[in-house]
Amino acid sequence: MLELRNVSKWFGGLPALQDVSFRIAPGQVTALIGPNGAGKSTLINCISGVDRVQAGSVLLARRPVEALPAFKIAALGVARTFQNLKLFSRLTVLDNVLTGLTVAAERSFAVSMMRLPALRHQERQLRLRALKALDDFGLAKKAHWPASSLSYGEKKRVEMARAFVSDPRLVLLDEPVAGLNTEETAQIARHIRRQRSAGHTMLLVEHDMELVMEVADQVVVLDSGRCIASGKPEAVRSNPLVLEAYLGRMEATA
């Protein structure tokens, strides 16, 4: 599905990613862990085309995509959420989710302006899909609310609904439970488990080790931009390198 080969990225001379390589098989959930500043978000940005890699390649279904702009990568079926919410505050919740179907919607200005029956029909289908996704994430009741009036936890769920609504080939989730309380976290975890059993391929950035151990088929550990370990969750958990670099530091800061 997705393969990274020696991906590197610098910010003004400082390396953010160095020679990162791993692959994600279809239907798998890969957890990406690592201390703050390890380069996890940068990696997600590079895969989704928001940032450019400077060396190495990103292959999506064996096709190199590292040079494609973000919108083309989205069109290839890669959806994502953002660590710092990027909802459209002026749109309603439903319209926010509908933006997740941009790729499936009519793109011609002329056709959209005419709003002929075929377009109305398509719009109706898209709305049904969006409402279904909102229902899946327990937000159907608030479909017509302005997105700005939701709580933080609800916004996170809207963003997930927006990512999953198009049935993407690959979903990149950047810290979906960061900043949430236990109850909200449990809720999101439930949704991730459900999407996993529905067969979605995901790359999940997460600090919550319990969640990671439970849902991940594979864990990749980043530290200072380097991939220091990868493999089955149990194997990674007992890897001394990881314990030292990641958990050791976590305890030191805790």
């Binding site: 989704s48 085309g49 928001v50 702009p69 973000a70 919108f71 989205a74 069109a75 959806a79 994502r80 953002f82 990027k86 459209f88 505050s89 002026r90 749109l91 319209d95 509908l98 933006t99 997740g100 941009t102 790729v103 919607a105 927006r162």
Partner: peptide, 18 residues
């Protein structure tokens, strides 16, 4: 909707396929 998204956040809009 793509345009409204674009007006609010270009990065997010692009990541959604606009």
């Amino acid at each position: 909707r793509g345009l409204a998204a674009l007006a609010e956040d270009e990065t997010a809009a692009a990541a959604l396929g606009v």
